[in-house]
Amino acid sequence: MTTASATQVCFEDITEGMEIPAKSFGPVESTDLVRFCSAWETYSLLHTYQKFCLEQGHRDVVINGPFKQAVIINWLDNWAGDDGFLKSMSIQHRVFDFHDDVFTATGVVTKTYEVDGFGYVNIDLKLTNQRGEVSCPGIATVVLPKRGGPPAPVEYAPPAEYVELLQKLASGAERIADLKDGQGIGEFIPEKARNTIGMRGYANEWPEPLDRATIRRFADATFEWKRAYRDEEFAKSRYGALISPPLTVLRVPINEWGMMGESAVPHIELAGRSRGGGNAGQDAEWFKPVKLGDTITQVAYLADLVERTGRSGPMVIVYGETVYINQHGELVAKTRQGTLRQLSAE
């Protein structure tokens, strides 16, 4: 196994309170959005067609949440270097961003600690647009090598609570998690919807194994030049195969799930009138890279329904949890996706 290169950031270089070097993306052009939609395989007019967006009252094409997730991942993953590993990232989507916007990703180290001889770094992060609005606040954990030590592991065992979740999902049971006291209580959440919390959603298997073209297109779409995604010889030596950027595994298969996450969970009827919706954010955790030839099966359940009153009025946040399993039955990633449903009483 190769050891860290001279330019590799090492755990010893990191102190709490330290700023991660900022990185800017953009102006985000329509071609960037189309390229991303192509890699992500969603072709929503909201993220591609200005005419439609203007008709809907937006000032321009709306940048999709996963695009912002992708640039944050690009920034952290490249900072972690060839020998680091992006372990987890949680972000929220707070504002709309538009065609021609410029993003800057910034972060501060909040905690450093060691696990099994490797350096763990917790980061508070944000993605800010040129208007100074924080589009995505979030947190992340990156694993770094220690100076002179081996690269960060590329495979992580799932924690005990996920093992249980995986067993439940594999068992075929309809109820994946118990409904807890106080969960899903709200004016807009009927009893039937509340009782759906914890129930299994749809499983979806990728229609074909991950191929080189898809990896290249994903790397192109996410401005990614890291060797692991471009240089097959290097990737083979480190991972056993060419790998794809971390967001790839979270890709939504077209024509199966609609808005990220929510339509993977069982259908729920909320009370009141719909005023719209959106992507609230996603917590993602990775256990291994997705590799050339992998076929991922995604299985989801409805994890929670949370009623809140936002700036624009009442809303219910629908939380779906999804596990991403490869063809060997191994957990590759797990996410918790929030989808906003804005409501009114009549």
């Binding site: 071609t31 072709y43 591609t48």
Partner: peptide
């Protein structure tokens, strides 16, 4: 529809503004 145009652009990896950027 525009959705079909974008899907075609993606399939042929053609990212020219003429075929996707309404404002342009």
């Amino acid at each position: 529809q525009m959705r079909d145009v974008i899907r075609f652009d993606a399939a042929v990896e053609n990212y020219e503004r003429l075929h996707q950027d309404y404002k342009w």
